[in-house]
Design a protein around this nucleic acid. Structure first.
Length: 1115
RNA sequence: GGGCUUGUAGCUCAGGUGGUUAGAGCGCUACACUGAUAAUGUAGAGGUCCGUGGUUCGAGUCCACGCAGGCCCA
């Protein structure tokens, strides 16, 4: 049996072949089955949506997931990976609407809800086969055969069951949220409808800077100290004066600077003191008025004097109370105070923002967080409603403006002289009451309803909520136990989000989604939340008995709209109950997957228990407030637990210029094309090795090419090298392993390095840092294994008998390759499996059918030898220095030299170098390494201050001391070393003593020699070339030329040859004479004749020495 | 506008707790090597460490304020 040898390996082909092999041998299934009974590693698949085609970023995200699942499998864990599909939601609906050429308005009219939803169901899985294809081709192992699908009845039923649990715990309630609303059309608008072209228009509105009078009490005392007897007001600007009756708070920016200004109201001319942002004084007070005297002011003067009397920061003002501006309706709980708002700026207005929680999303959110009530009235149904009704008119309680439209919704002629908007009427009233500081027209853009062209209002609309705020504290607490990669996403983005948590708005007014399972009586006094199909059937039976329904629930029933909408249930008091028409947020669907993927809690209790919470999940960072949040929120509320213990939030995949990929711009990278061209392994390896997953990746195929060449090319070369000679020698790893202590220094070194590698890679994987793992593996393969170990040991493989040393070399290299295959298999699953299989096919060392069924290698501590690794590093540095010296003096490596000399300052260093002397000598072609120490007395030493140490001792004096140290003479340094101390005298009095620990002494120069140094290592090269050395150089040159001839003649490595040589040159003759055996051995010549008149001779020029060579195959 | 994040050589990236000469790979140039050869070695060119201020004897590193890109949220 031979090791496979490849000419021009096709990496894409490797992917295809191995994929076929996996399928035929059920490797994925086996990797789960063979771990039966072992501890589980729980992974959750964040469901993608198959209504679009997959992109290259999906390869990235899924590579990250796959890596850790494979790694944990190698470690012996059982890792079930259930696939899943996210099927509900707006993108699906929009796509369907686009394809049908309809709008939301047409649903239920031009097309029935039933047909519409059928269309959605069909559309959402349209690209499933493409997704499945990519999943396989990129090597993402996930169970595609039994995925969870969010639109299936079982899934929806689970979601209902969870909703009911939340309902029973009191977490579900009906409230309102501020949404764009068109009073003219009587409907809410989605944000996407608001983004239609033409909805934002320039309009001129009356704006008011209102004066809110500060209440004098303990909290506000500081304002009045500055004010003497004047009244103090907050100034706040609004472009929607009709919201002023609904004001219940004022918001300031925490860090913004505010001033208190003494002046006069321009309309009433009364003395006032007003508070506004310091940066905005110029907007309200003219420079020209700066020096005016207050006693000179007469009512009506154009120039109004002003004076800054005090200054505050926003946090100083927090909590100060003020009098209600337009007291039509009183709130139930305390309001009218200053709060901190994160959205406050000094871009425009006054730096103080008027808050009307019923008419602004920021207002609503901030007020809710800081316990500020909204101003509402109670309607006929006993429900709290805002001061403006759904037609856009003030309610009767706002007496002065009752029934008036807040915008021109009733088509009045605005050009008429008597036309006054409600905003203007409010402005007039406030001016009269000394409550307006400035009134002016202001042009700005304002959104309009795309159907009616009338301005929209931000308006509270009914919504169902989950009371996440009630578990906020627990969510934060549990979040702190989650290992986030990167940490900042957990602490920052996610942590801040939790800190500012508001209740989860569950309602969506759509058609294709999980229906909210709540039925209510028309007056809202009775309701029921349904938690299962069984319960629904029972309730329907009751309704049938009461005559509300005609038939019981059929055996097969779709839980979507419109079918559930047609169900009418019977309340306890016998009234009919209708379903709340809302669908739920699709994020609830995906957040419910830990439960619903098993149809839990309806069934599969054990399955669920075994698979909750997840050990690991990974998705894009954009999921922080999406999937990560909903998973966490549901787990905390339902199970009082985290949903996941470790999470990687990966970044975006951008194009090579750092721009977002988009199909529209045409810069999107096709994953099939990339994998087809470079193969899945190089693609994955590039993505992982290039940057940590949580950084954005600038995807550049040049990088994939580089990875393919540098890493896979080198590894493959190394394998080919091994296979070539192992096949010649029939090495099958049949013999017992050569004991490590009988192996060479370099064998033990690479084994030590290998074991160190196993350790660090394990640590990196355990730390969920695949990039560092990949880089460590790559460095090992390219630098240690290929460029050093193999290069230094080439001869051992192709020269001489199949003896123990050769066996040791094969075994060592085999072990390295096999171990690398295992270590790297999570990242490059196809290629590494091929490598493993190619090796194992011959050796039969393992019974596994795949590297993915293997166990992760264990590092053997006593094979790791730090001293050995250190001295090999020394050998590398020294070799590099000698190469550099040879280069400088143009002495080629083939020319042997007699010796190098090295100053050594410690015995340890001498021992270390002596141990690797052979290697160095071979590598740089010198005969001897000699050491020098202090006793040789020719060393020139260099001294360098240890700044870190000296800085701590001398602080500011470091500059002088440092300079003094660097100025020390050779004698000074000798004194310091001899007496373990050296004294400087500064300014003729101050004595400073330094010790050898305060400095670093190195030897840098040897007078009369060629030297090179790096760090503490200095090498001197003896460049004298004796006659004998010269001849040996010629011999080596000859060998080189003969080898070239062999190669040119197309000889195989093992072919023997006859040699003939002819030359007049005495040196050549001498070299041939003296090194005949050496030349024969190196070139596998069985005969070597010096003669004249060679047939078919090749003429050779060795640095000016001419000769002729004849070469024939020896039979 | 807010939160988070990134900014180091032409490109992709390293640079624990501050230490004086900022590194690697690729690319470029030159030379060498040649039974791993579409490989390899050596050397060279290439840096306002995004900017400005500050702390410090000393800042790529710490602080503040900006600038530019990105994500999420408004």
């Amino acid at each position: 049996m031979k090791y496979n040898e490849y000419k021009n390996l096709d990496y894409a082909r490797v992917g295809e072949d191995i994929l076929k092999y996996w399928k035929e041998n059920r490797i994925f299934e086996q990797s789960v089955e063979t771990r039966e009974g072992q501890p589980t590693f729980v992974f959750y698949e964040g469901p993608p949506s198959a209504n679009g085609t997959p992109g290259i970023h999906h390869v990235m995200a899924r590579a990250v997931k796959d890596i850790f699942c494979r790694y944990k499998t190698l470690q012996g864990f059982q890792v079930n990976r259930k696939g899943g599909w996210d099927t509900h939601g707006l993108p699906v609906e929009l796509q369907v609407e686009k394809e049908l050429g309809i709008t939301k308005e047409d649903i239920g009219k031009k097309i029935s809800v039933e047909e519409y939803n059928a269309r959605c169901r069909e559309t959402v899985m349209r690209f499933k086969s493409q997704w499945d294809d990519l999943t396989e081709k990129m090597g993402y192992w996930v169970d595609l055969d039994q995925p969870y699908i969010t639109f299936e009845n079982d899934y929806i039923e689970s979601v209902w069951a969870l909703l009911k649990k939340l309902y029973d715990k009191g977490y579900l309630y009906k409230g309102y949220t501020i949404q764009p609303f068109s009073p003219a059309a009587g409907t809410g608008l989605s944000s996407h409808e608001l983004n239609q072209p033409g909805t934002y228009k320039d309009v001129k509105d009356t704006t008011i800077v209102a004066q809110f009078k500060v209440k004098q009490n303990e909290a506000s005392e500081k304002l009045f100290t500055a004010a003497n007897s004047d009244d103090v007001y907050f100034l706040a600007w609004t472009t929607t004066p009709w919201t002023l009756p609904s004001n219940s708070a004022l918001a300031v920016g925490k860090g913004i600077r505010y001033v208190q200004v003494k002046t006069f109201n321009p309309y009433t001319h009364l003395p006032v003191q007003v508070i506004l942002a310091k940066d905005l004084i110029g907007r309200f007070f003219s420079e020209k008025s700066a020096g005016l005297k207050f006693e000179d002011y007469k009512p009506g003067d154009k120039q109004i004097p002003f004076e800054v009397v005090a200054e505050y920061v926003g946090s100083d003002l927090n909590g100060i109370e003020y009098e209600q501006l337009m007291p039509y309706v009183q709130p139930d709980t305390p309001a009218f105070r200053v709060i901190i708002g994160d959205f406050v700026t000094t871009e425009d207005g006054t730096g103080i923002v008027h808050i009307a929680p019923t008419f602004g999303a920021d207002d609503f959110r901030t007020a809710a967080q800081q316990n500020i009530p909204a101003i509402t009235v109670v309607d006929d149904m006993g429900k709290a409603v805002p001061l403006v009704d759904r037609q856009g008119r003030f309610v009767p309680e706002v007496t002065d403006y009752a029934g008036k439209y807040v915008k021109n919704y009733d088509g009045q002629d605005e050009s008429h002289a008597d036309y006054k908007t409600v905003d203007v009427q409010i402005a007039i009233k406030l001016k009269e009451e000394n409550k307006a500081f400035k009134v002016e027209k202001y042009e700005h853009t304002y959104p309009h309803c795309w159907r009616t062209d009338k301005p929209i209002l931000y308006y509270p609309l009914d919504s169902w909520f989950i009371k996440t705020t009630s578990v906020k504290h627990r969510m934060i607490e549990l979040n702190n136990t989650i290992n986030w990669k990167p940490e900042s996403t957990g602490a920052g983005r996610f942590g801040n989000w939790l800190e500012n948590l508001v209740d989860w708005n569950l309602s969506r007014s759509r058609y294709w989604g999980t229906p909210l399972p709540i039925w209510r009586t028309e007056d809202g006094t009775e309701e029921i939340c349904i938690g299962s199909i069984e319960q629904l059937a029972e309730e329907i039976d009751r309704a049938v008995d009461a005559g509300l329904m005609a038939e019981p629930l059929p055996a097969s029933f779709d839980l979507h709209r419109p079918f559930v909408d047609n169900i009418i249930l019977k309340s306890n008091h016998g009234k009919p109950m209708y379903r709340e028409t809302d669908l739920i947020d699709v994020w609830f669907d995906s957040g419910a997957m830990p439960y619903a993927q098993w149809h839990y809690p309806i069934e599969n209790k054990d399955q669920f228990k075994k698979n909750f919470p997840a050990d690991f999940i990974a998705e894009g960072v954009d999921q922080t407030r999406g999937w990560f949040f909903t998973l966490h929120a549901l787990a905390v509320m339902l199970e009082d637990s985290v949903a996941f213990k470790n999470v990687i939030a990966n970044g975006l995949v951008l194009d090579k210029n750092g721009n977002k990929m988009s199909k529209r711009l045409g810069n999107a990278v096709d994953p099939f094309e990339t994998i087809g061209k470079f193969g899945p392994d190089a693609t994955r390896w590039y993505m992982i090795v290039n940057a940590p997953p949580w950084d954005n990746l600038k995807f550049n195929t040049d990088g994939v090419t580089e990875v393919q060449r540098r890493f896979f090319g080198t590894l493959q070369n190394t394998y080919s090298f091994f296979a070539l000679y192992a096949n010649l020698d029939n090495f099958t790893f049949a013999e017992a392993e050569v004991p490590v202590e009988r192996r060479t220094e370099s064998d033990r070194w690479i084994i030590s390095k290998l074991n160190s590698l196993v350790k660090v890679v394990e640590n990196y994987f355990d730390d969920y840092d695949p990039t560092k793992a990949a880089r460590a593996i790559q460095d090992f393969v390219t630098d240690d294994l290929s460029n050093w170990y193999v290069r230094l040991n080439r001869k051992r493989f192709w020269k001489g008998e199949y003896n123990e040393d050769k066996m040791a070399a094969y075994q060592t290299l085999y072990t390295c390759l096999e171990t690398v295959a295992k270590l790297a298999s999570p990242i490059a699953p196809f290629y590494m499996d091929q490598l493993f299989l190619d090796l194992n096919k011959v050796s039969g060392k393992s019974n596994s059918q795949s590297v993915h069924l293997e166990r992760y290698p264990k590092a053997v501590e006593n094979l790791i030898d730090a001293d050995l690794e250190e001295r090999m590093a020394l050998a590398q540095t020294i070799s590099s220095l000698v190469h550099s010296l040879r280069k400088k003096h143009t002495i080629k490596v083939r020319q042997p030299l007699s010796r190098i000399m090295m100053p050594v300052l410690t015995d340890k260093m001498r021992e270390q170098i002596a141990a690797v002397a052979d290697l160095i000598q071979t590598e740089v072609n010198v005969k001897n390494i000699e050491f020098m120490d202090d006793s040789s007395a020719v060393l020139v030493k260099k001294i360098k201050p240890n700044f870190k140490r000296l800085g701590q001792i001398f602080g500011p004096k470091l500059k002088v001391v440092g300079a003094a140290i660097q100025g020390m003479s050779q004698e000074d340094i000798a004194t310091l070393e001899r007496e373990n101390g050296f004294a400087f005298i500064f300014d003729e009095k101050e004595e400073v003593i330094i010790t050898p620990e305060d400095v670093e002494i190195s030897s840098e120069d040897i007078p009369g020699w060629l030297v090179a140094s790096e760090g503490k290592i200095t090498v001197a090269l003896d460049t004298t070339i004796s006659e004998e050395l010269k001849q040996e150089g010629i011999a080596r040159d000859l060998v080189n030329r003969i080898q070239n001839l062999r190669k040119d003649a197309g000889l195989e490595v093992q072919d023997k040859i006859n040699l003939e040589i002819e030359s007049e040159n005495a040196d050549v003759k001498a070299a041939v004479d003296y090194f005949r055996n050496y030349i024969c051995e190196e070139t596998q010549a069985v005969n070597f004749e010096v003669k004249n008149g060679i047939e078919n001779a090749t003429e050779i020029d060795l640095d000016g020495m001419l000769l002729k060579l004849g070469l024939t195959i020896a039979k």
